[in-house]
Simulated scan of single mutants.
Amino acid sequence: MTPHSDTGPRAGPVHVHGIVRSGFRPRPGLTGVGGGAVLVVAEGPLAALVSAPYGPRGACGPPDAPGDSRADVSVLSAQAAAEAHRRVVDEAAATVCVLPLRLGTVHRDVEQVRRALADRADLYRRLLTRLDGRLEWGVKAYADDAEPDGAAGSGGATAGGTVGSADGLARAAHHALADAAECSRVHHPQDACPSGMAAACATSAYWTSPIAGAPYPHGRNLLDSAYLVPREEAGAFAETVGGLVARSPELHIELTGPWAPYSFADPGRLPDLPD
């Protein structure tokens, strides 16, 4: 018989924060979405970090697959829910490899969590292996709103080798950072924020910008990307960002992280995923 965790809730819907390897124990007193204690539900070599209770029993139906179901979080503060989800995932990521699930991933009960772990065990194991020892860094670049469209040139390189426009500088910055990372993801507006969570996304650093090109505190957002970087190469990556800041005074460049690999939990975004 497959060994099960004895730390999980016994009944009712649970919010699933992320997947880790069995044996991890969260900090005592850590709470998740809805204020419930964070517990571990294990199935073989894998475990899910869950919080419960999450509303009345039967509040949500069974998901088609882990990560595909959304709970109605309208009864909660959207910002509080996003911050609680992030807190649980990032605390785990500080010490172990964690595969984040999307905010609002809810299962009907603990047994459904265990079935999900068993059904997707091979994929989860491969993702954890690929992401082990790696964290996500975010980079955003902004242009001065006062710059008129096209005023800086066409975006091509000048005679001195400097990209003329702010857009061109942002593209060049991304290419330089992508070369310094294992893989990268450029966020698009439609991918920026889960439906109904705009308020939380706007205040939570790990979500991407809700609307690309909209006004920001530092001007127009030209680049909003995530980069997967091994822990031991974090210093070198930060130096690359610092060099871009020095060479690109036309841009305001922000580095955030390290985060759990939120942007790379989908196998389609990871090259060289182990078979």
Rank of each mutant, 00 (worst) to 15 (best):
M1R: 04
P3H: 08
H4K: 06
H4Q: 02
T7K: 14
P9C: 12
P9Y: 12
A11Q: 13
G12P: 04
I19N: 07
R25T: 15
P28V: 04
G32K: 03
V33I: 11
V38Q: 11
L39G: 04
V40A: 08
A42R: 15
G44T: 02
L46G: 11
A48E: 11
L49D: 10
V50W: 12
Y54F: 15
G58V: 12
G58D: 06
G58S: 09
G61W: 03
P66S: 05
V73H: 06
S77R: 10
A78D: 14
Q79W: 01
Q79G: 01
A80C: 00
A84W: 05
H85E: 05
R86A: 15
V98Q: 10
L99A: 09
L99V: 07
P100F: 03
R102V: 06
T105V: 01
V106H: 10
V110N: 12
V110G: 14
A118N: 08
R120W: 14
L123K: 00
R125V: 11
L128A: 08
G133F: 02
V139W: 02
V139Y: 07
Y142I: 11
A143F: 00
D149Y: 13
A157L: 14
T158L: 14
G161A: 14
V163L: 15
A166P: 04
G168N: 05
A176I: 01
A178R: 14
R185I: 00
P189H: 07
D191I: 02
A192W: 05
P194V: 08
M197K: 05
M197W: 12
Y206G: 01
T208W: 11
S209Y: 13
A212R: 12
A212Q: 07
G213K: 12
G219I: 04
L222G: 03
D224I: 03
D224N: 15
A226Y: 00
Y227G: 02
A234C: 05
G235N: 14
T240W: 01
L244A: 06
R247W: 01
R247E: 15
S248G: 00
L251K: 03
L251Y: 07
G257N: 10
A260N: 04
P261M: 03
Y262N: 02
F264L: 09
G268M: 06
R269L: 13
L270A: 05
P271Y: 07
D272G: 11
D272R: 12
L273I: 00
D275T: 08
